[in-house]
Design a protein around this nucleic acid. Structure first.
Lengths: 164, 164
DNA sequence: CAAGATAAGTCAACATGGCTGACACAAAGT
DNA sequence: ACTTTGTGTCAGCCATGTTGACTTATCTTG
């Protein structure tokens, strides 16, 4: 009897804990992504543009196909925002010397400047969270978030973000 | 000279670290939210419906205004999905006895069943990440994510998810 | 070399889920 | 009685995702 009750109690607590973690992810992501909307609106861009700016900035010379693999959207969705960014002079394209079908994407100087403006508030937010939480907590954060990623993607993502 | 170089080096590492954390959040959120799409499609619902189901499930009797405060969307956006959920028999409404303008929202039995189906894969994913990362890491995860939340919202959110 | 595969681009149509603005109505507070 | 508040609704717009079909250039392979 006592066993059953305690087991139920622990299950309940466990589920509560899981829910907290899920909701924390929702709220943190919500606030985290809301930082940039003001800056983006001033360029008539949205969050999709930001994601492209971010990943092209991080991986200069990235191909369209690789970018699609990161963002997990269709070519058609990407092309809309990418064309706007190219037309606006934020991103440049040039054929890969080894395979001239591939277009290497990179930020222009204008693009880098926008990238800096966009990443600054997010980096400040993360830096603050780091200071408050401490280095150990950061390591825990990384371990848990890494565990949340799909198995099939994990290795590729860790390679991508440079944590081998 | 050496000082400058080392300072620059540390700044660079620091920025790298910040970027890793930012990208980890992106990828984890991406995979985490993709779990449910198949189930949702079978009900002709989207992620917006899931968020409503989730928070109404967690807070039975919640008012429309409070739900809007959590989701941070407009009344008009919410009403679209909420009406579909009510029409489908997933959510019930009844006036609050104390203030009959307020409509208390709650899941019906059908809604609870859907909620269970939706939360199961996410809870499994989080539980797996917990096991792999360990309890300490989970505490670190919580501390960092809590730090990412806007100051103005933090207290309210911690109260909401039950971590006073 | 010819044939097929691959990378990229494009057009068209559609779905989802945000937004603003304007307005209506019932209930509560003064 | 008048105002404020909580909710609902209509109408339209925008951002960003989707599918499907097709083209073009280039690389790879039998």
């Amino acid at each position: 009897m006592a066993d059953t009750k305690s087991a139920v109690g622990r299950l309940y607590l466990r589920e509560e804990e899981l829910r907290q973690v899920i909701e924390l992810l929702f709220f943190a992501y919500r606030d985290f992504t809301s930082d940039l909307d003001a800056i983006l609106r001033s360029c008539r861009f949205g969050r999709a543009h930001h994601r492209v700016i971010h990943f092209v900035g991080r991986h200069p010379g990235i191909s369209v196909a690789d970018l699609l693999g990161i963002l997990r959207i269709t070519k058609q969705s990407l092309s809309r925002v990418l064309n706007q960014l190219i037309a606006g002079g934020y991103i440049s394209q040039r054929p890969d010397a080894n395979d001239r079908r591939r277009r290497m994407l990179a930020l222009t100087e204008k693009g880098r400047e926008l990238e800096r403006r966009l990443s600054a508030p997010q980096q400040a937010r993360v830096a603050r969270a780091f200071r408050e939480a401490g280095a150990e907590a950061v390591e825990g954060y990384r371990r848990v978030l890494t565990g949340l990623i799909d198995d099939e993607n994990r290795a590729a993502i860790l390679r991508l973000i440079g944590r081998p």
